[in-house]
Amino acid sequence: MSDTILKISNVSKSFGGVKVLENVTFEVEKGNRHALIGPNGAGKTTLFNVISGIHEPDEGRVFFEENDLTQFPSRKRIEKGLSRSFQNIRLMPHLSVLENVMLGQYSRFGIADLLKPLNFSIESTGKIEATETLKRFRIDLYEGRTVSSLPYGVRKKIEVVRALMAKPRLLMLDEPAAGLNTEETDELRKFLNEVSDSGITLLLVDHDMPFVNSLCQQVSVMNFGQLIYNGNVPGLRKDKKVLDAYLGSDD
């Protein structure tokens, strides 16, 4: 079972005169846990933004399953089956935890459901599902509170849960482990393994190599906007280009 779920094909993107992405091409296999790593400024977040539609690529295409994503505006892409989290937490500060998470379900509802009151209805399947998901990931304690007052690790987790509520087939996480302590990182790994076991493909950007090593099967490495490695984790340590990028070359 090695179907491709996401295909990045010759994507280039410049900001002013700076080439941030240069002919980036790689594929993410269905069901895989795929990491995208690279030094700061390598273009990882820009690539995420191109995939999710915040930026249009100057050249190249992004295919998700059978769709050419570049044909769809950013808000339509979540309906196609991919959702994401953000490097700097972007939760809605004035919404409660539960409301933030329920916002993640938005794309799944038609107008008739959007007009149903959430607070007064006896049974709202969306609300029940959101509450149960929070419970499953052990953050139900906070559900009624506004997010701005919560600890960093909890907010980071809520962002992942929010992205999950769209029922994506591809979950894109931008530095999910950044700023977490060892205990929280371990818990996140367990959590992402559960997500992966439920059949969702993961594509994540992270700097924490032990975290990436223990979680991901496939790695793509970027440096100065170019893809320099694409393969499995053990191969990464022997690759000369990767070693040069991280440790510096002799010349």
Partner: peptide
């Protein structure tokens, strides 16, 4: 309603609300 939720989300961060659909 969820429309109301979306309105408040647009108030807080319209770019992210847009990505949420």
């Amino acid at each position: 309603t969820r429309i109301g939720l979306a309105m408040r989300a647009v108030h807080d961060d319209d770019a992210v609300a847009n990505l949420m659909g």
